[in-house]
Amino acid sequence: MSSPYAPKYAAAGDVSAALMMVDSRLKAVHDGRTETDAEHRELINQYAASLGPGGVDDMLDGACTLIYVYMEWLRKAHEEHDKDVIEYVVPTLVNTMRRMPKSVRPEAIPTMAGLVIAAGTGLSPNLWRKQYGDWTKEEMTPLEVTVFLLAEHINRITEDPDYATRLITEALSSGEED
């Protein structure tokens, strides 16, 4: 029996916009730029405002699609070594978020862990989240952090600082060709 939270029922959203947001943060961190959270947040807010009605929701769905794709890649990578992706990814993610109290409030961590667990078990993170109501303003930064940490985890595993971004851009390119 198929779950109503299966990815086939979810909107992919604006994956390109979500990827651009995460990739800019990855590059800033790796380039050693001292861009403050306030500056980055202002840029994100300006970009979100330019998306128009429904654009922010599309970007949120896109961020959840990134979580799903990254967790699928991580699941396959862990299964090659007979390891469970949830056992190895979620605790590290949660512990890292706990060390980021300015960006991720403690009450947001269970929701972000739930998104990752949903994706790791083959469910759509955005459909799983929607069962609890609309996104809150307080969840925006933790969502960005979650996608960033998953992308960074993949980049560390592959020893390639652009792998996670390339994974998505290649998937988007191959989807356009089909």
Score class of each variant (00 low, 15 high):
Leu123Asn: 08
Leu127Thr: 05
Glu107Pro: 02
Ile109Cys: 02
Thr121Cys: 10
Gly114Pro: 06
Thr141Gly: 08
Leu127Arg: 10
Gly120Ser: 05
Pro110Trp: 10
Pro142Gly: 08
Leu115Gly: 00
Met112Arg: 03
Leu123Gly: 06
Leu115Ile: 09
Thr141Arg: 11
Ile109Ser: 02
Leu127Phe: 07
Ser124Phe: 01
Thr136His: 14
Thr141Ser: 09
Ala108Phe: 07
Val116Gly: 09
Glu107Asn: 14
Leu127His: 07
Lys130Cys: 05
Thr111Pro: 06
Gly120Pro: 01
Gly133Cys: 06
Glu139Ile: 07
Gly133Thr: 01
Lys130Ile: 08
Gly133Tyr: 03
Glu138Asp: 14
Glu107Val: 14
Lys137His: 15
Pro142Gln: 09
Leu123Cys: 08
Pro125Thr: 00
Ile109Leu: 08
Trp135Ser: 12
Leu127Glu: 05
Ala118Phe: 03
Lys130Trp: 11
Tyr132Arg: 06
Leu115Trp: 03
Gly120Tyr: 08
Ala118His: 04
Leu123Glu: 14
Met112Leu: 03
Trp128Gln: 00
Lys137Asn: 14
Leu115His: 06
Thr111Met: 13
Ala108Cys: 13
Thr121Pro: 00
Met140Gln: 14
Gly122Ser: 09
Asn126Gly: 12
Pro110Met: 02
Gln131Phe: 02
Asp134Leu: 11
Val116Ser: 08
Gln131Leu: 09
Ser124Glu: 06
Glu138Phe: 12
Ala118Thr: 01
Ile109Asn: 04
Lys130Met: 11
Ala108Arg: 08
Pro125Ser: 10
Gly120Asp: 02
Gly122Gln: 04
Lys137Tyr: 15
Tyr132Ala: 11
Gly133Ala: 06
Met140Ile: 15
Asn126Arg: 12
Ser124Gly: 01
